[in-house]
């Protein structure tokens, strides 16, 4: 296996430190950076995210050389993992605060979790139901969620796993070298560590 060179992108999201600590338990070859030189050298990207979609989308465009990143991911096939809002950003747009545009790497919308009488935000540990067999998450593994919006991929084949919360909530998506988790692997103890390890093996 080639030497890992993990770059955690930092648009100012609160969970960067936690993601860094988790990756550090797996490999020493990780840095937090938005520098073009690092993006050009990276073997894996992780985009942590938390909070608001529109705010995240705006900041990503402000602090990241986005076209360089997009070229690395879409044309050169460098594996990319988006976490929570970082996953939602992979999609076309979000209805949060009007309509905000995402990366459109995976077609679909981000919509509010439906009112079904359950408390919102959806906060806590929920068990994964795999829609497609994958090596990243075992079926029934509990992962930690905290969000009020959910992704709705246009193509069902992009949905690897869901959880139940009054309705089906998209938990893990993938399209080629691009992956996204609605849950927080960096806060999901062993299950989260395993998922990140698998991603780094991809």
């Amino acid at each position: 296996m080639n030497e890992l060179n993990v770059v955690i992108l930092d648009y100012g999201s609160g969970n960067v430190a936690s993601v860094y600590s988790m990756v550090k338990r797996i490999t020493q070859n990780v840095k937090v950076s938005n520098e073009q030189a690092d993006i050009e050298q990276a073997t894996h990207f992780i985009l942590p995210g938390v909070g608001s979609f529109s705010e995240a989308a705006r900041k990503v465009n402000e602090v990241l050389p986005f076209s360089v990143l997009e070229d690395r991911v879409l044309n050169q096939g460098v594996p990319f993992l988006g976490i929570c809002v970082g996953m939602q950003l992979l999609f076309t747009s979000s209805e949060e605060f009007g309509l905000s545009k995402g990366f459109n790497w995976i077609e679909g919308e981000v919509v509010k979790i439906s009112q079904t009488g359950l408390p919102i935000p959806h906060i806590g540990w929920n068990n994964i139901i795999n829609k497609q067999e994958n090596s990243f998450i075992e079926d029934d593994m509990d992962m930690y969620f905290v969000h009020s919006y959910r992704a709705q991929p246009k193509d069902e084949s992009n949905v690897f796993s869901i959880v139940e919360y009054g309705e089906e909530i998209c938990a893990f998506v993938g399209k080629g070298n691009i992956f996204g988790t609605q849950f927080h692997p960096e806060k999901s103890q062993m299950g989260g560590k395993k998922l990140i390890s698998k991603f780094l093996e991809y």
């Binding site: 938390v50 905290v146 009020s148």
Partner: peptide
């Protein structure tokens, strides 16, 4: 809540 999200 607006800057960091209600979940925080």
């Amino acid at each position: 809540a607006l800057s960091f999200g209600v979940q925080s």
